[in-house]
Amino acid sequence: MLGFLTGLFWVAVVVIAALAAGWVFRTAAIAVAPKKVAKALRTAPLTASFGMLMILVYIVVAIFAPLIAPFGETEVVSVRNAAWDDQFLLGTDNLGRDLLSRLIYAARNTVGIAFVTTALAFIVGSVLGLLAATIGGWFDQIVSRAVDVLMAIPALIFVLLLLTIVGQSIINMILVIALIDSTRVYRLARAVAMNIVVMDYVEAARLRGEGLWRLITREILPNAMAPLVAEFGLRFCFVFLTISALSFLGLGIQPPLADWGQMVKEFSGLITFGIITPLLPAGCIALLTVSVNFVVDWQLHRASGLKE
């Protein structure tokens, strides 16, 4: 009972600290940002501000990983499985590599790969979706039916199936996940563009003789941008979680590249002894997805104009 209460106390402390950090960040951002951005920032709830702060921290850590990390990514610096001390803040892993450095480098690998995959899925999915909505007819029919079939197989199962076929490597994983994910992007992009294509001004643009490319980039895309950007956040979370799950299953990012999912697996045996090491990389994954979700939630709320 006492343990439970202490746990609850610490959860409350963490939540309050996070919200306070969000508040400080929001105040600072409003003061620094140009007027238009600052106005939008004022509407951000504390959860979203905290999310933005955390995303910023992740980006900084990922970019400056070699400067921040005390040791190299694959450098063996100590005895195996060393405990936490002053020099190795979080101890070392089963090969004697510094865990903190590995965690920092993993930000670069995992987040970077997830970002590339999402971007690829987005480019393919939205280009096809916008094309299908604009051209219509047989092109729309063929792509839409193909996407229907691809979506009839559950995502993770399909990824596993395709990985068996093409073999495991990082490039293959990126392509496979991007392919599966682009079907979801396609659905959304097509649905959004369908509503725009029927508007009078698009008709006028067609009559003016605008080409397909200009029609899509200048007339349709600007109006379809808001929902697509929010979707990008959600898709990123999904891709990021899928890659982490694959790495956790031993089918994703392979050693010696540092990766959070793979680190969770590596340390998973310790958890039954009450050692929290495996929760650290898992927590890194969770914190990023929570942050992105908070920001996306705010953006969706803003875009929908819901006042409830």
Binding site: S244, F248, A286
Partner: peptide, 26 residues
């Protein structure tokens, strides 16, 4: 709502290991 959003974002193995940490083990 906030806790729902949080738990949606958690990877399954994170939830699983937290539960193991709290309810199983020592």
């Amino acid at each position: 709502n906030a806790s729902a959003l949080t738990s949606i974002s958690f990877p399954e193995f994170f939830v699983a290991y937290i539960l193991i940490f709290l309810l199983a083990g020592a």
